[in-house]
Amino acid sequence: MNIFRLAGDMTHLISVLVLLLKIYATKSCSGISLKTQELYAIVFVTRYLDLFTDFISLYNTVMKLVFIGSSLAIVWCMRYHRVVRRSYDRELDTFRYWILLGVSFILALVLHEKFTLQEVFWAFSIYLEAVAILPQLVLLQRSGNVDNLAGQYVFFLGAYRAFYILNWIYRYLTEQRFTRWISCVSGLVQTALYADFFYYYFISWKNNAKLQLPA
């Protein structure tokens, strides 16, 4: 464990807590893409298949349970909670995410570390995570001004993967034979997708204005 990865995990945890806070406190999920939340639930379930077979550390196991539990709780809330579900922007959240699922799965069948169920699903979850934010970014674009909690959620989510890139650089420099090309390349793509959002987020923060994304 290094400081970059710890910072990344904590930032990721904050992004999930910000989202849970927004939904729980305001009993509203306006501006939040259910499709992105569902993709993230799939990312965590397919990535942590080794939850009960490989014990890395208590921290690792607890964090995996937190991420799986919170992502499923958010999806449940947005779909079935009688108050929250009414504020879901159903007509704006129309990204055809089957494409993302299909492409990621085909890519995982072709590019993986080992052709085993666990490794193929792990690669699938890495590829899917890189594009899982797209429905959310499209929804932010369509709903124009984002309320600041939705913007903060995306900001922390983008920052966490940027920290992980520093972590991979650090591990590559300090550990022999550290190779994680699938994660690195996918992480770079993921962070690049956030780049334009970061730019507009920074501008709005600097001008102390509400976030304006180009329509």
């Binding site: 080794d50 991420f67 570390e113 080992k114």
Partner: peptide
């Protein structure tokens, strides 16, 4: 087959 890196990251 290439060694699979231990999945010690989240």
């Amino acid at each position: 087959s290439p060694v699979t890196t231990p999945k010690d990251e989240l």
